[in-house]
Amino acid sequence: MQPTKAPRRPAHLWNWLGVVPFFLFAALFLILPTMQIVLGAFRSPDGGLTLANLRGLFTPNIMASYMISIKISLASAIMGCVIGFCIAAAVTLGGLPRWIRGPLLTFSGVASNFAGVPLAFAFLATLGRLGLVTIVLRDWFGVNLYATGFNILSFWGLTLVYLFFQIPLMILIITPALDGLKREWKEAALILGATGPQYWRMIALPILFPALLGTFALLFANAFGAVATAIALTGSSLSIVPILLFAQIRGDVLGDPGLGYALAFGMIVVTGVANAVYVWLRARSERWMK
């Protein structure tokens, strides 16, 4: 035993002491509540282990809710990624004047945070039965929007609304990644004989892939967990999973606490799987990184 080791010991402990508040907070208000849900999903009312709660999920109604939730999240994430990417690419690489960037990024910051209840109001006021766009289409163009089968309280309606925060979020995240594409890469590809599309397929998209993938996973989780917008928009007429869970917690329906746990656990599983796929794909696509 070396004498110098003794005084180092408390210093080491002291180091760990510095992060105790953070880990305590994370444990109490992030980890334990989540664990509570996971465990609750497998616990029967009398405290025993059971799969009955999860089995309760496999009714046509609840399965349909998960399906529509996943579909909306996928649709709004895919469209958010594609459209956001196009706008970000237009501004960073498309030869638009540079002054557009600053305002666009600021606006994206605002719009990506303008979610929830007011966003629903905004779309109701615009595309609702008395909304500005509905009226303008009717009075000026003779188009009755609602006669075409459009309904803001529907799959496409909700997707359209979600895009209002999905697209800006994509722009915010992907713009720095696009800035990271060196001009020399494109020029080197061109002078070696590649066409523009070849450059994108073989060089730019593979380089951007991890960032695109991460953003997609984030957008998916973002849409999947969104409660406020959907409730303010549809009341409870569109039964997506978060609305179902919300009602369940409020005690409005179902009246089965075990099923609430199972619903919430199902949400964790979906976002968890989405992120596991992301991590796996990312690890595969990042071999060329440090």
Binding site: L30, I31, L32, P33, Q36, L218, L245, A264, I268
Partner: peptide, 24 residues
């Protein structure tokens, strides 16, 4: 690890977390 934890709230839906609070 710390970064992983700080990113968890983006993955676990808020409604799940608050449900956990109510029960815990």
């Amino acid at each position: 690890w710390v970064e992983f934890i700080t990113l968890l709230p983006l993955v676990i839906p808020a409604i799940v977390i608050v449900f956990g609070y109510i029960r815990l």
